[in-house]
Structure formats: C-alpha cells, structure tokens
C-alpha cells in the first residue's frame, strides 16, 4: 500500500510531508499517502494536531496594544442574550453543502461554477471581424480553461477539506439523531401514560387488563 509498508523503498520524509499536509501544499498523491499513514499511525495524528496548533499560535505574535472596542463586550452579551443556543445541529460553519456525504467532491463546489459563468460573459470588444475574433476567442477560451482548471483544482482541494469536515459533522449529527430518537421514544411513552392518567377514570391507577381499556372512552361519551 504505502511506501512505508514496503521496506525496500526509501522511507518517506514524514515530518516534511506532515508539515506540508498541515500547510495544504501536497500533491494529491502525497496527500493520499499521508492520509493512509495517518490512519495507521495515531502518533502521527497527534503530530499533525500539534503542527496545526503551532500554526494557529502564530497570531499571538501580532502587535501589542491593539484591542477590540470597549463597547463590543456589552454588544456581544446583548446579542447572545437574544440568541438561542442550537448545539451542533446548527453548528456546521461549512460553506459546502453538508447534505451530500458522497465521496465524489466534484459536485461540491457550487462557487466555482457560478464564477465560471460570470467570467465567461466577460466583454469581448473585438467581435466584428469574425475570423480574427474567433481566433482571439479561442485563445481566450484556452487561457480561460487553463485558469479555470487551476481554480477548479484549488476548489476541489478546498471542497475535500470541507467534505472531511462535513463528514465529521455528519457523524456527530447521526449520534445526536440516535439520542434524539431514543429521547422521543421515551417521550412518547410518557405521553401515553399522561394521556392515560388524564382520562376521567384516572383514579383507577391500578393496571387493568386490555379488556378494560376500550371501555372507558365509551363510558365517557
């Protein structure tokens, strides 16, 4: 599978590759190898998390003496006071659609498609002398395609990241859903009991055989 499974191949420069993984500069082949490696090596996952944390400590070095406006704190608390908490279910701060947990990220980037459209209708001043215009259009199209290809590839990478993130969210949501199902199952039971208790005959709390239960409603009416 991976190179490190095969001892006759030179060992991979894992620290560099892991750093590259965190920095997002790997080729897709490299990324696949890293992902396989990570799946097999828990300690490498910790290493990735540490590199990630390192990177995100960078902003602590930013200029001293700059602080948010004083009024912001009160403003935030007011806003939060008016906002209900919606744990996890509403959490997904992902721009990619969370609804498609398929492993074909091709459908993901809605953005790029839209962008392509707007680019394609960019004004083309040389439109009258047809042959020349055609040639120019062809060149432009080729350039455009190259550019778009590049963009699509970046988009794809981003979308993959989104997808990975979204999938974690989905797992999480699935867990919550199960809990919810359980909860509503027991809720239903309680409601049943409550309904029973609310029946006019509710003084008869002792459990009765099924033969008795159809009766009371009839007796009420």
């Amino acid at each position: 599978m991976t190179a490190h499974d095969r001892p006759n191949l030179p060992p991979e420069p894992w620290p560099e590759l892991l750093a590259g993984y965190v920095l997002g500069d790997l080729s897709s082949a490299e990324r696949t190898r890293v992902q396989q490696y990570l799946a097999a090596q828990p300690e490498a996952q910790a290493e990735v998390a540490e590199l990630q944390a390192t990177l995100n400590l960078l902003p602590l070095s930013l200029a001293d003496g700059v602080a948010p406006p004083a009024a912001l704190q009160a403003q935030l608390l007011r806003a939060a006071g008016n906002t209900t908490q919606r744990p996890q279910a509403a959490a997904a701060p992902v721009t990619a659609p969370v609804t498609t947990p398929v492993t074909t990220p091709a459908i993901q980037p809605g953005g790029p498609a839209a962008r392509q459209g707007s680019r394609a209708i960019a004004p083309r001043p040389v439109w009258r002398s047809l042959p020349r215009a055609v040639a120019i259009a062809a060149i432009a199209a080729a350039a455009l395609l190259g550019w778009q290809n590049l963009q699509l590839r970046s988009a794809l990478q981003l979308a993959r990241q989104d997808l990975q993130f979204a999938q974690q969210r989905i797992d999480h949501l699935a867990a919550i859903e199960t809990q919810l199902a359980n909860a509503s199952a027991s809720l239903a039971k309680y409601q049943e009991i409550i309904t029973l208790l609310r029946l006019p005959e509710n003084r008869l709390l002792a459990l009765r055989g099924p033969a008795a239960s159809p009766k009371p409603p009839a007796a009420v009416s």
């Binding site: 997002g24 910790a46 998390a49 990630q52 990177l55 962008r115 970046s154 981003l158 990241q161 990975q164």
Partner: peptide
C-alpha cells in the same frame, strides 16, 4: 477566494494537543 487552505481541515484536525 480559493485561498483558504487550512481553515477547515484545521478545524477537523484540532484534536490532541493540550496546547
């Protein structure tokens, strides 16, 4: 707009380290 390289994967990978 395609610049964001790490943000999302960063979130998903934020496990581990007691930083």
């Amino acid at each position: 707009k395609l610049a964001e390289r790490w943000g999302r994967s960063a979130l998903s990978l934020a496990e581990g380290g007691d930083t």
